[in-house]
């Protein structure tokens, strides 16, 4: 397992990009009433053939050349199992891959969500071919950001411009904070979200 769920998200999404995906859809869902935290990373990449899908949770299996181990999904599965959650991966050649990790919201062993703005901006900074839709759902309230729309508004200024990425990071941080931690009990809620 890793320190933050955001690290798992980054790892899975990077795999998507390395596999050739050009669009990522990342959703984080927090439901404090039913006590569920779920994240979904979906891509439009090539998808996994059966022989890869069969071994994707085997830590000694990787499709990358020059490597002996592939720990992305095995570590996520370990984190999920440790808290009594579950992991679903759906993938087929030509249909992309979707990873859904579901955790109990209130579990001492659940890693905190971590720094989502940094993760999203890190993914965008690392590849100029990728579009990303980030959706955050907090008790039914939704925040959504799509780089396709942002690119349109930028009118030709590259998304990778440092100022744009910096703005994006701040915008994400403020929006997620307003969504999840707004109001007088903000600090309390933030503390609980930390795990």
């Amino acid at each position: 397992m890793m320190e933050e769920l955001a690290h798992h998200i980054l790892d899975i999404a990077r795999n998507s990009v390395e596999a050739g995906a050009t669009r990522l859809e990342i959703t984080v869902e927090e439901d404090t009433q039913s006590g569920v935290l779920r994240f979904v990373v979906g891509d439009n990449g090539p998808g996994m053939p059966e022989h890869v899908r069969r071994r994707m949770l085997d830590p000694f299996f990787t499709t990358k050349s020059g490597k002996k181990v592939g720990l992305g999904l095995p570590l996520l599965q370990m984190a999920v199992q440790r808290c009594g959650g579950h992991l679903e991966v759906s993938s087929a050649p030509g249909q992309g891959t979707t990873v859904v990790a579901t955790f109990p919201y209130y579990c001492w062993d659940r890693p905190p969500l971590g720094d989502i703005p940094r993760t999203v901006v890190g993914l965008l900074a690392g590849s100029d071919q990728v579009d990303l839709c980030y959706r955050h759902v907090y008790n039914g309230q939704v925040f959504e950001l799509d780089t396709v729309e942002i690119r349109l508004r930028l009118r030709g200024i590259p998304l990778q411009t440092p100022e744009v990425l910096l703005w994006l990071r701040q915008h994400l941080a403020e929006s997620i904070n307003n969504l999840c931690g707004g109001g007088e009990d903000g600090q309390d809620r933030l503390a609980r979200r930390a795990g």
Binding site: M1, M2, H7, P59, F60, L71, P74, L75, M78, Q81
Partner: peptide
């Protein structure tokens, strides 16, 4: 924490942990 061990343990170390998942073997080998 697997990512911490990957980042900070060194070749030749004995690794003390509560974890017993097979990922432990992969991290140890790496």
């Amino acid at each position: 924490m697997m990512s911490d061990v990957l980042a900070h343990a060194r070749r030749g170390d004995l690794w003390i942990t509560i974890q017993r998942h097979r990922n432990v073997v992969a991290v140890a080998t790496l």
